[in-house]
Design a protein around this nucleic acid. Sequence first.
DNA 1: AGCTGTGAAAAGCTTCACAGCG
DNA 2: CGCTGTGAAGCTTTTCACAGCT
Lengths: 226, 226
Amino acid sequence: MSVDQAAKRDIPDATVARLPGYLRALGQLTVQDVLSVSSEELAHSAGVSSAKLRKDLSHLGSYGVRGVGYDVAHLTYQISRALGLTHDWPVVIVGMGNLGRALASYGGFATKGFKVVALLDRDPQLVGERLDELTVQPMGELVSLVTPGEACIGVIATPAASAQDVADLLVAAGVSSILNFAATAIQVPEGVHMRKVDLSTELQILAFHEQQRSASVADELLEGAG
Amino acid sequence: MSVDQAAKRDIPDATVARLPGYLRALGQLTVQDVLSVSSEELAHSAGVSSAKLRKDLSHLGSYGVRGVGYDVAHLTYQISRALGLTHDWPVVIVGMGNLGRALASYGGFATKGFKVVALLDRDPQLVGERLDELTVQPMGELVSLVTPGEACIGVIATPAASAQDVADLLVAAGVSSILNFAATAIQVPEGVHMRKVDLSTELQILAFHEQQRSASVADELLEGAG
DNA sequence: AGCTGTGAAAAGCTTCACAGCG
DNA sequence: CGCTGTGAAGCTTTTCACAGCT
C-alpha cells in the first residue's frame, strides 16, 4: 500500500498534464467498443509520440501486456485513479457573466469527476436567477458552502478587476485549488494550487508563431534575391 | 536588420509562453502611471521568479538599465514587437453556442492585437443573428473570408463531435493557426499551428494535486501513529 | 551601490533504442 | 514475433551567482 502511494507521488508534472488527454482518447475507444489498444494507436489519438505515452504510463505502474497492448477499461481505471477521479470533486463557480454561464452549462463538467455545487455572483441583479438546476447565490454564501479541510475547487470567471478579491475570499473560505479564467495574474498563498486559462495569452502565442512564419518567408525571398 | 530578425528567431518556447503575462503586468503599471520597474517587481506581478524574467527578457535584447530597471513604455513596445502585436491579427470564431458567444463578446480580444472578423455556425437557426457588431454567417462563407497566404487565426468553439470537421475546413480555407476549445484532440497537417484550451483537463490537473494533498496528510497521520 | 545580463551548473523532459516478456 | 517498459543520451528549461554597467 505504501508502494502504491509512493508510485503516485512522483508522477512528473508534464506527465500529469497529459493524462487527461489519454483519458479522453480512451473514452472514445470505449464508446467504439474497442477492448485493447497499442501505445502507437493511443498516442496517435491523443496527439503525442508513442515513446512519450509509454514513458508517461510507466510512471503509473506496469499496466500493459507486452506483445499485445493495453486493456482499455483497465487503463481507464488506472489513469482515473492516478488523477483522483474515482470520486466527484465539488466545484464552485464565481462570476455569472457570459463566461460563467458558458462554464456552468458545459456538460463535460459532470461527465468525469466534477460536480458544480454552487454558482455565485456579487451582483444582486443576478442573484436568484436559475441556471441548469442551480440558483445563483450571493458571495456571502461562500463560507457556508465550503468546509475547510474538505477539498473544493473554485473557478473564477469574473472580470479582471475583481479576480484578486474573489481569490482572497475563496482562500479565506478554505478553497485550496483555483482555476482562474480572469485576464489577470492573481497571487495566492503557498499551499493553494492555482491554474490559469487565458484566451489572449493563447492568441498571442499563436500570433508569435504566425509572425515567425512571415519573417522566414521574407528571409527566403531575400536569400533567393541575394 | 538581419541581426534583429535572428534575435527573434530563437526565443525559447517557454519564454514565448510567458511574454503575454509580462505584457499584461506592464499594462497595469502603465495605467498606474508607473514609468520604470525592476525585474523583481515585474516578476512578482507576473507571478514568476526575477531570474526567470531577466533570462526571458535577455532573449529579446538588452532593454533594461543596470542599477535602475526597465522603462515600462519601451519594454511594452519591445515585447509587443517580439510577439508580433504591432498590427492586428484577424480572428474567425466557429461555433456560436454558449462558449462561442462568450468569446465573441469578450472585450480583451480587441484590446491588444486581435480583431474578430467573422462569426460562423453550421446551424441555420443561428445564422443571421447579430452579436456585437457582427452577424453570424454560414460555414460556406469561410472560403471568402480567409485569403490563403494571409495570416488568420481560427477559433473552434463547437461541440467535440464537429471539431475535427471544422479544423479541416479551416485548414482547407488557408487558416494556419488554430485555437481549439472543443473537448477533443484534433489532427492538423504539419505547418499548421494548433493550441488547445480545455476546462476538464485543467480541472483534472487540479484534482490530481488535491488528491496528492489528501494522500500526504493521510501519510503524516500514519507516520505519527507508527 | 544597485540592478541587469549571462555564463555555468542543476533539474526536468523527451527521444532513442533495445532488453525483456507474453 | 510484437509490443511494452526502461536505462541512457540528448535537449530544454530553470536556477544560481556574479561580472559588468550606470
